[in-house]
Design a protein around this nucleic acid. Structure first.
Lengths: 219, 219
DNA sequence: CAGTGTTATGAATCGATGTTCAATCTCAGT
DNA sequence: ACTGAGATTGAACATCGATTCATAACACTG
């Protein structure tokens, strides 16, 4: 089965765009959007500047592709980490841990999302917000299930889920402070314990080993 | 008592710089640094572009002045709100509330700090970080005192203080989500309750009316 | 009033960068 | 080998904006 010329063209398009996204991710990480020139990007990607424009509309389009790439990573890794758990709190803990680890693996990406949101056009920005809300919505669902299962007290799940999201992002945003103090796994465990300890039924605490310790820094 | 020419020059410098900072704060709020032109800024300030350069070194200097202005607001309002409390948890609650309210009154400023940190030179960035650490340090001190007073369990005060800082900033960063759901006072009270409920000795909870309710959205 | 020093002005300058497009290259089919 | 279509190239172009600097205005003093 040989593909037709349209398939060849589509495949080449994907290939070129991923070259561009990879190079842009590297440069945006260190320079930010406004310092990065399209000429530098082309060089980093190993293609000419004219070729860049063959596959992306303009400079802003590049930023949008990169940010979409980053947010999609959250979207895929968090739900996957939530699979296979009967206990909703275990599911939440695993999802939050994965969220933190994705943030860690793409630290510059999270920072970029906060830094460049003003650069995006209105509808692109809405798309970014929707992706973020989707991931946070998964956390809300788990929290609600924990309440129904009698694990957690009644609470404002929307706010608590956003707290978890914000604390996951904080690993990147304040990495200059936290990075030398603890590992990402220690951080994730500690922050999860903070939020959950506020709302958990005391008598079920002993069921979860990740809540076994007081809220010390683990060292 | 008439001032000498140096005093006149100093006063004029201060006046011009505050004109520049006020105009820049307005424009940076809506446009961000890279969209704001120095010509537009001069117009907004009601002075010529040449005069701008009489009093600031370059465009980046303007950004630095604005950000210093914002962080100084935190630095002055938070300690002041902490005065006059014997109970360290009351002091912390008041300080956190003030922090949230300063963030609210200067929402664009907080966003700017996250957005433009990559634009600043290394030593300017260090200065910004130091100012932030100073405010957070006040929260750490209160948390330690609460532990010594037997109000809070032993915990990692550094991380919890940064959690409070991050949650204060979140009001600005995620205002698009929270702004239509609750007032800044409701938000501050709820977020304070989340963090403190995780670490408070149960038997002292009833002493504090701001912890009287479960962690519902207050409506 | 004239002279001097200080302050303000805004058009011009200069450098950088996003984007284009004419020229060239590559590949597949005949 | 030739041809045509598609892909690539990178210098040129047009635009923009940070900064400068010659000129003008202002304030003060003798």
């Amino acid at each position: 089965m040989t593909a037709g010329p349209e398939a060849v063209r589509a495949a080449r398009g994907e290939w070129r765009r991923s070259q561009i996204v990879d190079a842009a991710t590297a440069l945006l990480s260190t320079q930010g959007y406004h310092q990065m020139s399209v000429n530098d990007l082309a060089q980093e990607a190993g293609i000419s500047v004219g070729t860049v424009y063959q596959y992306v509309k303009n400079k802003e389009d590049i930023l949008l592709l990169v940010m979409r790439d980053i947010l999609e990573a959250y979207r895929h890794n968090v739900p996957r980490a939530m699979e296979g758990f009967d206990d909703p709190l275990d599911r939440l803990s695993s999802g939050f841990g994965a969220y933190c680890r994705v943030v860690d693996s793409r630290r510059a990406g999270t920072i970029l999302a906060y830094r460049e949101s003003s650069t995006l056009a209105k509808d692109a920005l809405s798309e970014m917000k929707s992706l973020e809300e989707e991931t946070t919505g998964l956390l809300v669902t788990c929290l609600r299930e924990c309440v129904e299962a009698g694990i957690l007290h009644e609470h404002d799940s929307d706010t608590l889920a956003w707290d978890l999201t914000m604390l996951a992002h904080m690993w990147s945003l304040k990495h200059w402070h936290f990075g030398s103090r603890m590992s990402i796994d220690e951080y994730a465990r500690l922050q999860f314990a903070v939020v959950v300890s506020a709302i958990i039924h005391q008598e079920v605490t002993t069921r979860y080993e990740y809540l076994a310790r007081p809220l010390h820094r683990l060292r």
